[in-house]
């Protein structure tokens, strides 16, 4: 049985900080919300229900690579801000995708409606922005840019809907903007708070780019292997919305399966039986295997990028994470 994300351990001091960061987030949110609204309480649920706290840990790990001492409260707030930003995007993504499940639970929009989910998401965006505005030049300048990149990625994905001619590099560009950009922001933000060198910046940026792609591609592949409930995400919804992830893109290029797959995907109905056939064809055409292979390549590239950074416990943790991204079962 392959190791999962749950087996990933950061150095103990980072783990401790990470717990404190979560407490900081709760405190920050309470400052904004005198009467806790349903939506804000749901946010707490999200992390309890298996949210990984991955991005805050990236901030904290990157911060321990620089040479200057870090102001601890600032660092905790930075880690918190990145997580709040991430959750904001999840709420909005779920509205945009009409998703009903996330991590095995009902989405906020499914439970309380789109209007609420959008407002809570926008509120969290505002809170993240507020925090970042207090955290130095890098945060102030690049926070908005990251958000814009995330939007652009979503937009490109949306406008590529039902495009059966999309190619793998288009797809990777979208994935990079949607997933990697926040990872990149997290590591560079952490590093900026501890005075990293430009060599370290370049290295971490590269690391985060490949890390994001490794995660995204592995997720895309795993979506096709599991059953609906176990995965917690509605795969069919993606296909019905015309969103074709890399396994599908690869399979569309197959001589044997490409044609039939095209016809299936463009059928406006796409019932359960057709979905099963799509999944089977995608797997048979090697779409899943190919995607996992690419994910592993990105993991290796992420680890390689780290070699330019001085080796320490934080670095090892980052390297282990990169490998786990593409070798986990969930």
């Amino acid at each position: 049985m392959t190791a999962g994300y749950d087996d990933w351990r950061c150095p103990p001091d980072v783990e401790r900080l990470s717990v404190k960061a979560e407490a900081t987030i709760r405190q920050t949110l309470r400052q904004y919300v005198e009467t806790p609204t349903a939506g804000v309480q749901k946010w707490f649920r999200l992390t309890d229900a298996g949210g990984k706290g991955l991005r805050p840990r990236l901030v904290l790990l990157a911060a321990s690579l620089g040479s200057s001492p870090v102001e601890r409260d600032q660092l905790l707030r930075a880690a918190g801000a990145v997580e709040v930003l991430h959750v904001a995007t999840l709420y909005h993504d779920d509205v945009i995708d009409n998703a009903t499940l996330r991590r095995g639970r009902q989405t906020l929009n499914a439970e309380h409606g789109n209007a609420v989910a959008i407002c809570v998401g926008a509120l969290l965006f505002a809170i993240a922005a507020r925090e970042l505005s207090d955290l130095g030049t890098f945060a102030q300048r690049f926070g908005p840019i990251v958000t814009r990149e995330l939007c652009a990625g979503e937009l490109w994905e949306l406008e590529g809907a039902f495009d059966v001619d999309i190619d793998a590099s288009d797809y990777e560009q979208i994935a990079a903007r949607k997933t990697s950009s926040l990872f990149i922001f997290a590591v560079l933000l952490g590093l900026s708070m501890s005075g990293g060198t430009s060599t370290q910046e370049d290295a971490l940026e590269k690391y985060a780019l490949h890390l994001g792609l490794a995660f995204q591609l592995a997720d895309d592949a795993l979506d096709f292997l599991g059953e609906r409930d176990r995965l917690g995400k509605d795969v069919g919804a993606d296909l019905r919305a015309g969103v074709y992830t890399l396994p599908v893109v690869v399979a569309l290029g197959s001589a044997e399966h490409g044609g039939p797959l095209r016809r299936l995907l463009l059928d406006s109905q796409l019932d359960e039986r057709s979905l099963d056939e799509v999944a089977t064809r995608v797997i048979d055409a090697g779409g899943v295997a190919d995607t996992l292979e690419r994910a592993r390549t990105h993991s290796a590239l992420a680890v390689e990028a780290l070699s330019a950074v001085s080796s320490n416990d934080a670095c090892s943790a980052l390297a282990r994470l990169a490998l786990l991204a593409s070798s986990r079962s969930r």
């Binding site: 945009i96 959008i118 965006f125 908005p144 958000t147 814009r148 939007c151 979503e154 937009l155």
Partner: peptide, 12 residues
């Protein structure tokens, strides 16, 4: 939703 997010980002 998307346009709102985009305009917010550009504003920031």
């Amino acid at each position: 939703a998307l346009l709102g997010d985009y305009l917010l980002a550009r504003s920031a």
